[in-house]
Amino acid sequence: MKDLLTLRETAADDIRALLDTAEAFQEIIKRPVKKVPTLRGRAMITVFYENSTRTRTSFEMAAKIMSAEAINISVAQSSVTKGECLKDTMLTLQALKADCLVIRHSSSGAAQFAAERIGIPVVNAGDGRHEHPTQGLLDMLTIKQAKGRLDGLNVAIVGDITHSRVARSNIWGLTKLGANVRLVGPSTLMPPDADRLPVKVFNNLKEGIAGADVVNVLRLQLERMDKGLLPSIREYSRLFGISANSLKAADSDVIVLHPGPLNRGVEISAEVADSAASAIETQISNGVAVRMAVLYTLMGGAGAPTTEV
């Protein structure tokens, strides 16, 4: 594995290996002194063309726990605002001789574009509506640990599928490891030809989450109304919002995921977000473990993870 750009193009065995590695790293995160020398002397550069707090912080923490240098390039302060094209930015970063690039960009395909032009491993931290593979992996790890398996589970992804890179990474990753994926949302937020993906498509929440083991709730971008894709937040919430009441259709042991940040009272009720069924906090800590596994796999080379202090 040179890069992690998509889960669609990552082999099932590589996904399993990344999840196993992440589980091994979870123990380190729980230690009072969170520091191992695994990646000492290595440098990770993060370039975020879109705002993000949690993903960027998560990568930075993952790198620092493993003693790698974490260098953040903030686009607002960089030459990008002077009109530098992505290709030139990549050539500049290549010359800096870092060991890994983590990139987030508003254009689908930007991470692949970067990987084709920079000689170091690239991690896609979200490209347009395309993929967000580390989010997909952390969702999978969270589900696997809560349910003990992925194979045969029914996972409903609810909300704005069209614009969601989280949904796409979940679809490919989960189905590769044997889960059944359903997409649930209004027709205006369901991508064209969604039924040709390895999923079942539902426009009715109750039917879509009936008996589901997992409900992964997507954030609703509130500006979707302005584009005429939704009549109102109120109606969306009534039809597709995950509340204690609507969740009754799911399996009694259902867990609820959300990639954050939450719109409480819109796509998810505060009651559900704070309930025992919510795995949202676990997702965040699993995000660090998954990103440690990814950085280790791409920068650390072969061999079992070194977890000794």
Binding site: G128, R168, A194
Partner: peptide, 13 residues
């Protein structure tokens, strides 16, 4: 083109 490829690639159709 709007369709399966655009959906997979995450490109507006």
């Amino acid at each position: 083109n709007e369709g399966y490829m655009a959906t997979v690639m995450g490109v507006p159709g």
